[in-house]
Design a protein around this nucleic acid. Structure first.
Length: 252
DNA sequence: AATATTGTCAACCGCGCGAAT
DNA sequence: GATTCGCGCGGTTGACAATAT
């Protein structure tokens, strides 16, 4: 039986760390011919490597736009949140964090976050909630009760105000899994407290995803109004079931 | 200073999936 | 429908660095 995923001549090709010369050969070839056809790429590029090794080197190291090291607090919070939702689906997690690779996130998780969670299980969720609540307050001048949230419980108790959002329902990332439609909805601020976008919350902001208290998921959220209390705020987002979100992520 | 231990991370391996034949 | 191929994924390994003893 054929051994899947392994080049027939795997034992003849070079393995281990890549040299600068090999990196240049690979980069030059991909720049000239684009990615794909990894199996034939090494021979065409003059590399004594297997296609899988070339692909990995390109995706995790040479590809333009790769960020290396110094994972920020915001990125760390996003990783924690996404991992809670997605589990060890590193490629999906990496897909929501620009410039980071699945390998880097996986390494960061296994060497750092896993241990951190074990010793500090509760702090991360509190940070997220506080940050989001404070930013919501900054966009809505009538919500002074949220400007200095101390705990999630105190926030909930003060959230008797709600505002009406005119929203349009559209599919995330232009995928075709959802029909377009318009709807009106009413959201109390407390329902947004778990919102976990990776950019600052406010008019004009866009988000990759968010999760409401009821477990529903918002993706591609865009806050388009001025957020001044009685003025109408428009929000464009896709409200999807969790399985649909996973499918949408996988489709990108 | 020498050795042992621990941490980090690039790279490899095997598997599963979808497309092509 | 069965088989083959190519790709992408997650788990694991191993080389090297940093730290502890």
């Amino acid at each position: 039986m054929k051994k899947r995923g392994v080049s027939p001549k795997a034992e003849e090709v070079k393995r281990g760390a890549w040299t600068d010369e090999e990196d240049k050969l690979l980069s030059d070839y991909i720049e000239a011919h684009g990615i794909g056809r990894w199996r034939n790429l090494p021979a065409n590029a003059g590399l004594n490597r297997c296609g899988k090794s070339c692909r990995l080197r390109w995706l995790n190291y040479l590809r333009p736009g790769i960020k290396r090291g110094n994972i920020t607090q915001e990125e760390e919070q996003l990783i924690l949140r996404l991992h809670k939702l997605l589990g060890n689906r590193w490629s999906l997690i990496a897909g929501r964090i620009p410039g980071r690779t699945d390998n880097e996130i996986k390494n960061y998780w296994n060497t750092y976050l896993k241990k951190k969670i074990a010793t500090d299980a509760s702090s991360s969720s509190k940070i997220t909630t506080t940050t989001v609540a404070a930013t919501i307050a900054a966009t809505t001048s009538t919500q002074s009760s949220l400007e200095n949230p101390s705990t999630e419980e105190s926030n909930k108790s003060k959230n008797d105000n709600s505002i009406s959002h005119k929203a349009e329902f559209k599919s995330p990332n232009n995928s075709s899994s959802h029909e377009e439609e318009n709807l009106n909805l009413t959201l109390g601020f407390d329902s947004l407290l778990n919102f976990n976008g990776h950019q600052e919350f406010g008019p004009g902001s866009e988000f990759s995803y968010g999760e409401l208290h009821d477990g529903s998921i918002l993706t591609n959220y865009e806050w388009r109004g001025t957020g001044k209390g009685s003025e109408e705020i428009q929000a464009s987002f896709a409200e999807v079931e969790w399985e649909s979100l996973i499918k949408s992520c996988e489709a990108v």
